[in-house]
Design a protein around this nucleic acid. Structure first.
Lengths: 212, 212
DNA sequence: TAGATTGTTAATCGATTAACAATC
DNA sequence: TAGATTGTTAATCGATTAACAATC
């Protein structure tokens, strides 16, 4: 029964890029687009684009191209962002707060439904109209909130424990901003975002570039 | 003269991970580590680890392993984060402000030396002891600040123009948080961070997982 | 020395790109 | 129909992993 072909992660990442791009095209009243045009505008190889889509059955018309609105709808459905998703944010520091207020989230159906922190000074206060809850009550609260995605924006020293608590509270996916490798059950998917790593790579590339 | 072997990007990313891990090891007073032990603790394949290091000449002693402090020093030097680097942040909204105050940056020699915004309400005020400067004066200011890395934390609609101004101001590397594909000269390196993309991939993976 | 572990070459795996028959 | 462009297979490229001689 498991005939679903495994979709490469880079394909999924590009799918999100295509979606953003298609939203812009729709706003510009473009109704059809070809893979060659996608390449011209985004730099992503036309064959790559077609191959990426081919993991999910047909989308386009040979000789014509892809209908912008239809493709947009299909990609949104594939990524499950055609419907509301509840997300919790753990850690209400500068970064956590910025994420709670991040403007694009709602538009993409990611609804922040809870914010948690451990500091007595923060618990009970609000950010962007959300009460900051005690991280120790994560499990009880998420029994009601039912978020399956959690954003971890706590210091590295707290992140592993937070990840475990989130998993115990029914969370299935973690977006981790703490600079640490989380060890979680394979029922939980993790993606890491590391500012320091990004800057370090850039730092190397500036110099490597000079050598060419 | 161009005999430098091309280092894969994933290798550079892992190098930053190794560095973090080595700093932790040093704090725990471990002085030697083997590639097998690295695999056990980080999940990164031992051969991968050795291969990654092999792009940069020898580090270890056969039969013994790697000296933690020495390896740490060498990786920091490769990534150019053994010395101070000036970084500017463009966009002083929630995200930009959070990045200016991000605690790990200074420890890794990334010094935020300037923050820019376009809003008259923000220009002239301070965040984390830094004056917010007028983004229209980017070029003049960076002639003094001499940052080669810029973090772009402005809305998508402003990002392309900001990237061009940064490049004109001598910036060589961009860490872009705006959800848009920047078009820049190939003298400028870019890395993108997209929260929405990360969440979208997780969103897909939660469901894909169920099918297995 | 014997045991352990490196650095590197070769084998494998997976992702990207090219090519082209099918089709609108 | 002729021209354009898809979906997919095959070729290429590059990264990961395994294997092992060199060496501490």
């Amino acid at each position: 029964m498991n005939s679903a072909p495994k979709v490469p992660i880079p394909t999924l990442e590009r799918l999100a890029t295509y979606l953003r791009y298609l939203i812009d095209l729709e706003a510009s009243n473009v109704d059809t687009i070809s893979s060659t045009e996608v390449e011209r505008q985004t730099g992503i190889n036309a064959a790559q684009f077609r191959k990426d889509l081919s993991y999910f059955r047909e989308f386009g018309k040979p000789g014509v191209g892809y209908n912008v609105v239809e493709l947009q709808t299909r990609i949104a459905r594939i990524l499950q962002i055609d419907r509301d998703q509840s997300v919790i944010v753990i850690g209400a520091g500068n970064l956590g707060s910025a994420l709670v207020g991040y403007p694009g989230l709602g538009e993409h159906h990611f609804n922040i439904v809870g914010v948690f922190d451990s500091s007595p000074h923060k618990i009970g206060t609000t950010i962007f109209d959300l009460d900051i809850l005690d991280v120790r009550t994560l499990k009880e609260n998420n029994a009601l909130l039912r978020a399956r995605i959690a954003i971890i924006a706590v210091p590295a020293s707290a992140a592993q424990a937070v990840a475990e608590n989130a998993a115990a509270a029914g969370v299935r996916a973690l977006l981790n901003f703490a600079p640490i490798i989380l060890k979680v059950s394979d029922r939980v998917v993790v993606r890491n975002v590391s500012f320091l790593q990004e800057l370090a790579v850039l730092s190397y590339q500036i110099v490597a570039d000079v050598r060419k």
